[in-house]
Design a binder for these strands. Structure first.
Ligand SMILES: Nc1ccn([C@H]2C[C@H](O)[C@@H](COP(=O)(O)OP(=O)(O)OP(=O)(O)O)O2)c(=O)n1
Length: 1054
DNA sequence: AAGTTTTCAGAG
DNA sequence: CATCGCTCTGAAAACTT
């Protein structure tokens, strides 16, 4: 409500835009009780004031923090706010000298091969911490309300997991459990991790899964709380209600193998969005903490409570814990991460060893390829002693119909069943298949048996190259050269037999082995040997090849076969002998130079690919080129807010992985899948992606990073460009590339710092001007400091452009670009040479592509303006674009791309950003208006952060420049004060506080750095900076707070 | 022509 | 109830300058 008061015109137009029923529900939402929250803000040198008298402070609220009350208690928000006081000591520590780039927030122990559950452990631990926080908070709340503060720990020693729909709700049970001393498990990572499972509705499947657990009705919780002691769970057991037969089943299973089931699949039940608002608030806080701060905004605000919390399933990406759940159950995710872990492990060994063994040139290579037979199927089948792997058709899968088959045994294959097939198709081929579960732990265990064994015999191998979790290539050239040609066959087979039997002894899984003169031949030999065989392909290679289907060649897939058949006009299966008939030039013509050459060679049994591990230069990088997080399952959204929350989670996941890998990256690529126009809304596969079109967009960060805030901002900006309507979204993938080792990156930064230069520079960039006076002459040393532009200006400009497009994208139409209908950055730009057209509209008809010379528009034309009523907003927003921003952007890109930054532009940059913030708010509100399913303002949080990161870059540059001089220039100080005031005019206290705090911390940081380096005495800029913070910046905040009766809680810094 | 970004294909 | 369609690499194509 206060937002709207701040912006009457906006609010008016918002109201106008509503239809009758929307208006009504808006009014009704306003009429609900208002909650007042106290502002608590930590600032240095201010006395701490806290307490109830803050409550009536009526202040505009920018934060989505004032969310609805989880348990309908009007004091909650107040207490929540109070609970988040930061103990001064703590914050003082944090404030000291860490640059925020070095932050590793919430990252647990490093993920190593063999510890894949660490992730979930961390997740779990965090949950417990939040529960604890909640319990404390509840205690305090009761105290204040004059209720009994202390609660008997009825559930002490109980670990409760709630399954499915219950009365009361999972939220309430969660609350009761944690308040009364129990532990609440959001996930059942392991069946034994919960002492009791609360469940009201019995399905046969659940009964099967939980048959050995204490499954109780929800009433057990309620009644226990009521009488104040733990009641006997048996009186509430769910299985009492089942028939005698089923009970017997229960008893029987007690006597039999308890380890029979996979605990993983218990998690697949619905889970309520737990204590949502409480955690959402917490989450917001965590986000703020990225800047080592906690900001509590407050004031009166219409509480939008009354929205019904739709029950979200953990199966869809709307659920806050979707990602860990999904990855825990995704075979392909496991496969990929195992592979990456293995690769890292072996490369690290090579790196540490210095050089790998080099085999002599004189001898011919010999490669051994080994692979478990139908790995998942074999391993999983061990958990099912009743099944006979030799006789039963066994497949490993989650589901019953459209679920993928990860692996099938050779019996199943004899019916035509293949890995990757859907169960449905497999059943068509052979209805009696036995579907068994994944056993990820077991696969991991056997893989480590395999690789540890290979390592134990590494003396026999020149290289161990992990292809996959169940598959390795060994270079046995040296071993092969140990014997005479005549003994070679026997010599090789002896090794194969030994390896095979050893591994089979260790894992009880059959292995096949193929050996050949190169990787290609070893692979083909392996394939021929399967299952349970050994083959050394030594002679008659040509004949052997002739009969191999082309499709079996490595790197030859569906597409190449299609093309090839097309080329030779054949519809039947093509063999390698067919391939060999085609001239090299023709192959190159059809398939491209590399692929053509490769096919030509393969047809002749030639393959020079090496399996030498090359670790590259950096220990962390280890040859890796990218890190990505992909999700193309369970993506179902209704609102942009949901999408943004999910994207933020993706960013966090990405950040976590980068931190674990000790990497930073400077390029971000977003790939979105959009439901194809003709595809059904619900694809055949439940929660699958169906037929989709893909859209990629990448952007470069000014500086390599692994911070989720930065990544999230970038991802969000990219997703705006791609502009897929939330309901059409079916897949999201984020890739970070241009990787660097984060340690080297940090060191590079620090060295530069101590040299008195700009902080945020790419370490690999060469020359850094030490004397800042260079900046003043635009004609001197331009090339040397050219890169400096990248530190500050172009990033903003790039963002600017993105924002620009976004604005138009948002208001133009809700469709995304499709092939031939893309939005291009360049459309915003004037033509390459002449600048007659200063500004090109983003939207243009694809039917009328502009001539290139006139406008430099891309070949592909842009989004078609849709005949939408909302188009009217287009001009409205366009007209309100501050021309200064436009000019700055255009100038910057047009002329300054290769010029240096003049520090005097700093002033204009602050002005610009302040303007832009206004603009963003405006745009967001337009967006809000357009958001049909949403009468609440969308999360602005990310937007704010996007821009905030720009400011941080500018601030850093500013401080870096001025630190070793006499401090900041007066003009710049004034500009910054102006910026702060503008923020406050928009009631954006949070941003203000953060900006000032950021300066404070940067100054401290530089101080620490210069102390640490050789510099004697105190830097001249330091005192001045501190003085200015105190006399110029802080008063602005304090004035504002006094006027608005906001109390700032003090805290000493440094 | 050479650089950059996007798309595609293939692997387990 | 369904179900857990990831992630990396290299090459080609598309688009720039
Ligand atoms: N589309 C696929 C292919 C493979 N896998 C998993 C299950 C397999 O067990 C494992 C190894 O893949 P392989 O290609 O080696 O296939 P298998 O080991 O199952 O059979 P085989 O190697 O005997 O052909 O990877 C999967 O989940 N989905």
């Amino acid at each position: 409500m206060d937002d709207e008061h701040n912006n009457p015109a906006q609010y008016r137009s918002f109201l106008k835009s509503l239809n009758d029923s929307q208006l009504l529900s808006h009014v009704s939402s306003l009429s609900q009780s208002q909650t007042h929250i106290s502002t608590e803000r930590v600032l240095p040198d201010t006395p701490s004031i806290s307490g109830r008298n803050d409550i009536d402070a009526s202040t505009p609220n920018e934060s989505k923090f004032a969310s609805s009350d989880p348990f309908a208690d009007s004091f909650n928000d107040i207490l929540l706010a109070q609970e988040n006081h930061i103990p001064p000591a703590q914050l003082g520590e944090q404030d000291s000298d860490t640059s925020e780039d070095e932050e590793v927030s919430g990252i647990g122990p490093k993920h190593e091969f063999g510890q894949y559950d660490v992730y979930f452990q961390n997740k779990h631990d965090k949950q417990q911490l939040r529960d604890e926080a909640y319990r404390d908070w509840d205690l305090k709340r009761r105290g204040l309300q004059g209720q009994v503060a202390y609660q008997e720990p009825i559930f002490r020693g109980c670990t409760i997991y709630v399954n499915g729909y219950t009365v009361p709700s999972i939220n309430e049970i969660h609350r009761l459990v944690i308040i009364y001393g129990g532990i609440f498990l959001p996930h059942l990572a392991n069946k034994s991790s919960a002492t009791h499972i609360v469940c009201d509705k019995l399905t046969p499947r659940k009964q099967q899964i939980f048959k050995n657990c204490k499954v109780v009705k929800a009433k057990w919780i309620v009644d226990s709380v009521e009488v104040g002691r733990l009641l006997d769970w048996k009186k509430y057991r769910l299985f009492q209600e089942v028939s005698y037969d089923q009970q017997r089943l229960d008893l029987k299973s007690d006597t039999f193998a308890i380890h029979q089931f996979n605990t993983e699949d218990i998690i697949d039940e619905d889970e309520q969005n737990i204590l949502e608002d409480f955690y959402e608030a917490e989450q917001l806080n965590n986000a703020e903490q990225l800047d080592d701060e906690k900001v509590q905004l407050n004031g009166s605000r219409a509480d939008e409570d009354g929205r019904t919390l739709e029950k979200t399933s953990i199966m869809t990406a709307k659920h806050p814990d979707f990602l860990p759940h999904f990855f825990a159950n995704s075979r392909l995710h496991h496969l990929s991460s195992w592979k990456a872990d293995l690769r890292a492990k072996f490369l690290k060994m090579v790196y540490q060893a210095g050089t790998s063994k080099v085999n002599m040139n004189s001898t011919r290579k010999m490669i051994l390829h080994l692979d478990f037979d139908c790995f998942f199927a074999t391993a999983s089948a061990q958990k099912h002693p009743n099944l006979d792997i030799q006789k039963d058709a066994i497949v490993v899968s989650h589901g019953n119909d459209t679920s993928d088959i990860a692996s099938c045994n050779y019996v199943a294959r004899s019916f035509g069943i293949r890995n990757g097939m859907w169960i449905r198709s497999a059943k068509d081929l052979y209805p009696n298949i036995c579907i068994i579960d994944y056993e990820f732990d077991l696969y991991e265990k056997y893989a480590s048996e395999l690789y540890n064994y290979l390592l134990s015999r590494s003396g026999d191998f020149d290289t161990i190259y992990p292809v996959s979790v169940d598959e390795a290539l060994l270079d046995i050239t040296s071993y092969a050269s140990e014997c005479e040609e005549s003994d070679l066959q026997e010599h090789i087979i002896r090794l194969c037999t030994l390896i095979k039997s050893d591994i089979e002894r260790l894992t009880k899984c059959t292995v096949s082995v193929g050996v050949g003169r190169n990787v290609l031949l070893a692979k083909l030999a392996l394939q021929k040997s399967k299952p349970d065989g050994i083959l050394f392909l030594n002679e008659n290679v040509q004949e052997f090849l002739d009969d191999i289907p082309m499709r079996s060649l490595p790197r030859v897939g569906y597409s190449i076969i299609e093309k090839f058949q097309q080329e030779i006009q054949s519809l039947s299966e093509v063999k390698v002998s067919d391939l060999r008939k085609i001239a090299k030039s023709r192959l190159i013509n059809v398939f491209g130079p590399k692929t053509g050459q490769k096919l030509y060679d393969y047809a002749r049994g030639v393959d020079d690919s090496s399996i030498r591990l090359d670790s590259g230069t950096s220990p962390a990088l280890l040859g890796r080129k990218s890190v990505s997080v992909d999700v193309n399952f369970g993506i179902r959204f209704d609102t942009t807010k949901e999408v943004e929350v999910f994207m933020a989670n993706m960013a966090k996941e990405m950040s976590k992985r980068l931190v674990n890998l000790e990497l930073v990256g400077s390029q971000v690529t977003l790939k979105l899948a959009r439901r194809a126009d003709n595809a059904p809304r619900n694809p055949p596969k439940y929660l699958g992606m169906g037929h989709c079109n893909f859209f990629n967009k990448s952007s470069k960060l000014g500086v390599a990073s692994n911070e989720w805030g930065i990544l999230a901002a970038e991802i969000k900006a990219l997703s705006r460009i791609l502009n897929i309507p939330p309901k059409e979204l079916r897949g999201v993938a984020v890739t970070v590339s241009k990787l660097e080792d984060s340690e080297t990156f940090k060191r590079g930064k620090q060295q530069k710092l101590s040299a008195g230069s700009i902080v945020r520079s790419k370490p690999k960039r060469e020359i850094i001007p030490v004397d800042t006076s260079d900046f003043k002459d635009p004609m001197e040393g331009a090339t040397d400091i050219d890169w400096d532009i990248f530190n500050a200006l172009p990033w903003s400009i790039r963002k600017e452009l993105r924002g620009e497009m976004t604005r138009r994208g948002i208001i133009s139409r809700d469709s995304s670009p499709s092939k031939g209908h893309k939005v291009y950055l360049q459309q915003l730009l004037p033509s390459g040479t002449g600048s007659q057209t200063r500004y090109v509209r983003v939207l243009e008809s694809p039917k009328k592509p502009r001539s290139r010379s006139a406008t430099a528009s891309p070949r592909k034309s842009s989004v078609t303006p849709a005949p939408e009523p909302d188009l009217s907003y287009d001009s409205a927003v366009l007209n309100e674009l501050p021309s200064s921003v436009r000019d700055e952007v255009i100038n910057g890109l047009e002329q300054r791309k290769r010029q240096k930054v003049n520090p005097q532009t700093l002033k204009s940059k602050f002005v610009e950003i302040a303007e832009r913030d206004k603009e963003v708010n405006k745009v967001i509100d337009e967006n809000w208006v357009l958001e049909q399913n949403m009468l609440r303002p969308p999360a602005r949080f990310l937007d704010m952060r996007t821009m905030y990161s720009d400011i941080k870059v500018i601030i850093s540059g500013w401080i870096a420049e001025s630190f070793n001089q006499e401090g900041p220039h007066d003009d710049d100080v004034q500009a910054f004060v102006g910026y702060l005031k503008q923020l406050l005019a928009q009631a954006n206290l949070a941003r203000c506080i953060r900006s000032v705090d950021y300066i404070r911390r940067e100054v401290n940081y530089y101080d620490a750095i210069s102390r640490a380096s050789q510099t004697p005495g105190i830097s001249p800029g330091l005192m001045e900076w501190r003085r200015i913070i105190k006399t110029k910046f802080e008063p602005v905040l304090h004035d504002y707070c006094n006027k608005n009766t906001i109390k700032l809680v003090a805290k000493t810094c440094t």
